[in-house]
Amino acid sequence: MVERGQRCKRVRIMPALAADMVVPLFAVGSSARVDADIAPKFKAGDTVTARNINPTGHTRLPRYLRGKSGTIEKDHGVFGLPDSMAHGGGETPQHVYCVRFSAREVWGASAAPRDSFYVDMWDDYLDPA
C-alpha cells in the first residue's frame, strides 16, 4: 500500500480535538480562501480554454473539460491550488473562476443545444481562448 520513499517525518500535531469543541468548530469550518492580494488573470465575460494538462499528481481539472473552451461567469476570489497543496508544495494562491461550457462544446452535436456546465477552475487551468 505504501511505497518506499513516500514516508515523511511525523507531522507535529496540535492536541487531539476535544468532544466539546466539535459543535463550535464544525459550525465554523475552515474556508479554503486565501487572504492574498493577487491580480486575477481573467474577468467575467472572457473566453478561456481549459489547458490540456495530464499530470501524474493531483489535479482538479477533470479530463472531460481539457482543451474545451468556455466563458468566465464569475470570479470567486483567491484560493490555494490543489495541484500544489496535495504534494506539500504550498498554497500557490490564485483566483478561482466559475467557467461556463456549453454541452455541445464538450460532448459534440448530440448534446442538447442549450445545456451547459458550470465548473470552478483555477488560473493555472486556463488560457485565453
Partner: peptide, 18 residues
Amino acid sequence: MAIPGSVYNIDEFRHTIE
C-alpha cells in the same frame, strides 16, 4: 473528521484515494 487538520489537508486526502 477528528484527526487534527494539521496532520493532512483535503487535497492530500483526495489524492490518497485517487
